[in-house]
Amino acid sequence: MTGPTPNTVLPAAPPGRVRRRRLTGSQSLCEIALAGALVIFTAPILWMILLTFQTDRAIISMSWEFQFTVQNILAILSPDEPFRTQTLNSIAIVAGTVILCGIASTLAGYSLSRLRMNRWLKYLVAGSCAILPLLPPMALVPGFYVTLIQTGLLGSLTGLILLNTILNLPFATLLMKIGFDEIPPALQEAASIDGASDLRTFTTIMLPLVAPSLITTSLITAIMTWNEFLMGLTMTSGGTTSPLSVGIASLVQPYEVRWGQLAAIGSLAVVPIMIISLVASKRIIAGMTRGAVK
């Protein structure tokens, strides 16, 4: 009765293969159904990316013909078109919103989670975090429009950064509050016993610890801002003042639609985000579900 000798022990299967047992009937049915669903959810996006490389003639033709051309991409990137400026606008708006929203949500989330703050102030902040996401943005548009006219910010990037920050701030604050909740309270107590002020505890202890939550929050904010359309549409006059999402919409003209270029600019807006999602899917999912469930 000896134990298994090294000869008889099977080589350890790599972790990925452990689960690859043979599939039972109902199991493979389940895999097939899921694969079908995945095709339905991805095919429309892939079709647009495919059309990016087709000529308009091939797209309009009723038969199936495929070529490969980069003409559409070159066309929308040419200096005559506003899309370069619009892409830069979008990047500037995203950067500004992520920074502003990051600062405001981290500070507010810290107070909500960790500090003994004025009770009424707490109700006010928590209440607006709960109510603002329920309001349709369109219902606020008339008010924002007038406010921006009064402050002279209508049509400016600053105005759009402010509005995007406002729209994302309640959710971001909630995410940051949850992030601070997860830090063990002992650390904060230790710092305050050692005589650190609230501000000092915040900057030297809490901020480094909450960095992962801040990255998640910033990712979600960045994606939402990059995709934002309504404020860009209503608060700018189009052309080179607007973000990329509005530029895309302006390509759909009633009479002459440049289908290939339309697909190309759509891909331009989508592919960066899809690449980010491949790298950071865990974070995005965590941000989307964590904030929503609570």
């Binding site: 689960r19 690859r20 047992r21 599939l23 199991q27 895999e31 899921l34 694969a35 995945l38 959810f41 991805t42 429309p44 996006i45 079709w47 647009m48 059309l51 994606i223 990059w226 995709n227 359309f229 999402s245 509005v246 895309i248 919409a249 759909v252 289908w259 339309l262 697909a263 759509g266 807006a269 989508v270 985000i273 899809m274 999602s277 491949l278 899917s281 995005i284 999912i285 989307m288």
Partner: peptide, 28 residues
């Protein structure tokens, strides 16, 4: 068993595509 990981990433895509692009995709 085999598609669980990849489904989570792929099923994320429609939700993070800009709504404007979604309508464009479906127009095509």
């Amino acid at each position: 068993r085999r598609l669980a990981r990849v489904s989570q990433i792929i099923l994320l895509w429609p939700a993070i595509v800009a709504p404007v692009v979604v309508s464009l995709i479906w127009l095509l």
